[in-house]
Computed example of a mutant assay.
Amino acid sequence: MSQTVRGVIARSAKAPVELVDIVIPDPGPGEVVVAIQACGVCHTDLTYREGGINDEFPFLLGHEAAGVVESVGEGVTHVAAGDFVILNWRAVCGECRACKRGRPHLCFDTHNAKQKMTLTDGTELTPALGIGAFADKTLVAEGQCTKVDPAADPAVAGLLGCGVMAGIGAAINTGAVTRNDTVAVIGCGGVGDAAIAGANLVGAKTIIAVDTDNAKLNWARDFGATHTINARELDPVETIQDLTDGFGVDVVIDAVGRPETWKQAFYARDLAGTVVLVGVPTPDMRLDMPMIDFFSHGGSLKSSWYGDCLPERDFPTLISLYLQGRLPLEKFVTERISLDAVEESFAKMHGGQVLRSVVVL
């Protein structure tokens, strides 16, 4: 039978979110009901609320989540009731051209649960990133659940579901940062600090953090930045070059996603260096640069979707490193809040007061 639980929805663009009753159907074939234990408040959820993703309101918000599998539908073999899982929004298909070429992290046909969660009046909900985890329980596709060590704190583990994985993966998977590399990260919010943590984990010798907020630069030091640059006070490109004997760094990660920061990233790298764009631009943004600069610099220009992660490969490994004390994921959790405090947490996030507020159920 279906069940009624609490959930946080965005009913219309820019309106405050609401905590309401929602209806979760029994899992169908290939589907799983997960009892949510914790869910991070990500900027993407705010973008949904603002109408910046699409207009398929009402949205059931929340996607950086961990919890316990409550029940599974027909044919589910990947997880079982009682498993502790992290939810992800890239349930790969295994059949598209990317998957068949051995690149499932680039899957072109990721999927979600087929059934719809609803309001009590039957209105269908659109779950954020196909998850919808600001709720006591949610319905997802089997492939959206990744089993990990249950010793992990759910408030910490769930953050791998989006922003933290995006940053770590941008450094390790997309940027291929390795020992003795020099790295710069532009933008030191949650994603940028995760990139710094990832670069530190694999042994980068120099990690330069760039931001306009000294509080965020202090956070960056906690995650392993060896140098910091306040871009309001110093020219980032010139300063990065000064810190690297005039050459620039091996890898620059743009965690902001604006034309001006991408240009800084481009010119702050070494001649054969790599630029990784993991910050998300808006559709109206444009670049105007001399083509000769692209030709003369060489190297690689990459975009990173979800840190080019493969959840079943990356989540268990990163949780293991966290439990060993080698990856300080717990430092991303600024505060733990209740389900009725999401709207307030959006204001704190927008004001740069938190790395992550995490709803704990």
Rank of each mutant, 00 (worst) to 15 (best):
I319V: 15
G122N: 11
E50N: 15
L201Y: 12
G192D: 04
K137R: 12
T146L: 10
G248L: 03
C188Q: 13
A170K: 08
V8C: 10
V92N: 00
Y322H: 15
Q3K: 13
R269S: 05
R90K: 15
L217G: 04
D284V: 14
E50P: 06
D235V: 07
V156F: 04
A272P: 02
V359D: 03
R221H: 06
D211M: 09
N88H: 03
V79L: 10
A141Y: 00
G224F: 03
G40H: 04
V41T: 08
M349P: 04
K331I: 04
A265P: 11
P328G: 10
H105F: 12
V249A: 02
P154A: 13
G75T: 11
T206A: 07
V8K: 06
T261Q: 06
N112D: 11
D83S: 11
K100C: 08
E330Q: 13
D284W: 11
A166K: 01
T44P: 08
V191M: 12
A347P: 09
V148H: 00
D45Y: 10
D26F: 10
L301Q: 06
G246D: 09
D26S: 15
I24D: 02
A215T: 09
V251D: 02
A133R: 02
F108A: 15
G132F: 06
D45K: 04
A341H: 13
V252W: 03
H63M: 10
I168S: 02
E50S: 12
A195H: 14
P316F: 05
V41Y: 01
A113R: 03
A225Q: 12
S320E: 10
I168M: 05
V140E: 00
L310R: 00
C145I: 06
V358H: 03
L310H: 01
G189A: 12
V32C: 11
S12E: 14
P281S: 15
E124G: 09
L327Y: 06
K137Q: 09
I24N: 01
E238Q: 15
G30T: 06
E233S: 13
G7V: 01
T123S: 04
G307K: 04
G30V: 03
L234K: 12
A10K: 03
V32A: 08
A151V: 06
G7Q: 01
G307I: 04
L301N: 07
V41G: 01
A204C: 05
T239L: 08
D83E: 12
P29N: 14
D314M: 07
A141T: 00
V76H: 05
G102R: 04
V185Y: 03
G298M: 09
V256S: 09
G248W: 02
I207C: 03
N173Q: 09
G248A: 11
R49P: 05
Q3D: 14
T239M: 11
C99F: 04
G203F: 11
G273D: 02
W89A: 07
L321E: 13
H43E: 09
E64Q: 14
G130S: 03
P27L: 05
V5L: 07
D153K: 13
G279I: 04
A272T: 13
D211N: 11
L310A: 02
